[in-house]
């Protein structure tokens, strides 16, 4: 499989359900050509210059719209923006022409050391201005809009002064980026930090939401309490499906991704989850079976 002579052209992602593309499923996807709206990849999985990953992605790209989802940009870090990382992403985006490119509203490095995790920002005016500036830098480099995703968090800072939803909305409004609304992350944070997840939905405006993520989480029990951890290793739970239904009612149908990263099941399990999301996209007011 070789890419088209003139290169790829952007194929718009429809307001349908898609799934995360993981290397374990490349061959199944190419063989089965499942009827999903799009595939999303982790951008960094294609930072290597050549080999099989690119052959698979070129083949899949020829048939499906793509979304590029980054986990390593460290958007919120006070370190200088990693230019090398950003340039490599630009090369990939220029080549594959994904319809959506996203990153996380978090930080993951300090002083050149990477923690390779999505660490929470304090919701302060200083952090807000910093992230807005960083999103602008990335958008200037890529010469396109990016989406930022709200992350799960396991702590709150005592000096945060802005509600998370307002922080997310302000970043989008002031930088011109879109929002990748992770409904599972909203639910996890609502439980962990004791707020009504519908308040979060109410704080974000429909036109800024360009994509929705759904995933499974895990409950960790300690002797002094329990906490939800965003593990992407199981089925979307009923509460998150209900919240997703509310989100679709509020924002209208949006491209929706089923994320599953660890203990990856067979492709059919992801496709079943995508089908459930697709049903809600088409009839958010219908009763749950």
């Amino acid at each position: 499989m070789t890419p088209p002579v003139d290169g790829f052209t952007v194929q718009p992602i429809p307001a349908r359900a898609g799934i995360g593309l993981r290397s374990e499923h490349y061959q199944d996807v190419i063989a089965a050509r499942p009827a999903v709206g799009f595939f999303e990849i982790h951008s960094e999985n294609f930072f290597g210059p050549g080999g099989a990953p690119h052959r698979y992605l070129e083949t899949i790209r020829a048939d499906y719209p793509l979304s590029f989802h980054g986990v390593g940009m460290s958007l919120g870090s006070v370190d200088p923006l990693n230019r090398e990382h950003c340039q490599r992403l630009k090369q990939l985006v220029d080549y594959y022409q994904p319809d959506l490119v996203s990153e996380h509203l978090s930080w993951s490095s300090f002083n050149g050391r990477y923690f390779n995790d999505l660490l929470p920002l304090p919701y302060t005016p200083e952090a807000l201005h910093h992230v807005i500036d960083r999103v602008r830098q990335v958008q200037d480099t890529l010469q396109r809009q990016i989406l930022v995703e709200n992350v799960s968090s396991y702590l709150q800072y005592t000096h945060s002064t802005i509600p998370e939803w307002e922080f997310v909305a302000q970043v989008a409004e002031q930088s011109g980026c879109g929002i990748l609304l992770d409904v599972n992350n909203i639910y996890v944070n609502a439980v962990n930090h004791d707020f009504d997840p519908r308040t979060f939905l109410g704080g974000v405006s429909a036109p800024t939401v360009k994509e929705i993520h759904l995933a499974g989480h895990t409950v960790n029990e300690f002797e002094d309490g329990s906490i939800l951890i965003d593990t992407h290793d199981q089925l979307v739970c009923d509460e998150v499906w209900r919240l997703y239904r509310d989100a679709v009612r509020r924002f209208g149908p949006k491209p929706t991704l089923i994320e599953w990263d660890t203990n990856l099941p067979e492709l059919s399990v992801l496709l079943d989850e995508a089908n459930t999301a697709q049903t809600i996209l088409e009839a958010p007011h219908a009763r749950v079976a």
């Binding site: 923690f115 995790d117 005592t158 300690f222 309490g225």
Partner: peptide, 20 residues
Amino acid sequence: LVCANGLNGNRRIQIYRNNL
């Protein structure tokens, strides 16, 4: 710098340390 509602700050940082 971490709110200690329920789990204390050390426990919360331990979650991130474990993730890493």
